[in-house]
Amino acid sequence: MIGLATIAFAVLAGVAVLTAVAALLVRELVHTILWIALFFVDLSAIYFLLEAPFLGVLQLGVYAGAVTVLLLFGIMVTRKRIFSREAATGLGPAPVALALLTFVFVVAAVGELPSGPSALQVYAPSDLSAALFGTYGPWVLILGIIMLTSVSGAIYLVREGRE
């Protein structure tokens, strides 16, 4: 019997793949941003489906919000070429074959994993935050350090008066 959740997942999965492909293939860069935003929102829905509300919100905020705006910003700053799809290379057989092979092998590899889904676990966001700032505190610290250095690096890269 096919449950409602399954149907919902099938739809969302289809949309995810389609939007991802569309984002890469459409001719206008601005359309790409629209498609990728849709992709992010779609994934967020999948997270809600998996009873991970905190991650769903995070996905919406960070990806659908911040990253999308950043990408849009990047396109606008390089305004000269904004509406052209420069050097959109044709679909060579090799990249497609490589991507397909990866897909096949990843799926094949999963067959090797010991698994057997039990009941869906539900975690309250408060549990997650307790874990994040308790057990996994070092991860967050490391993430903070990496973000700091990355932002410094980014500022260094784009600062005026280089060269």
Partner: peptide, 13 residues
């Protein structure tokens, strides 16, 4: 992942 790889390999922008 496959779609992402495909994009990485083919897009020049």
């Amino acid at each position: 992942v496959a779609v992402g790889l495909f994009g990485i390999l083919t897009r020049r922008n």
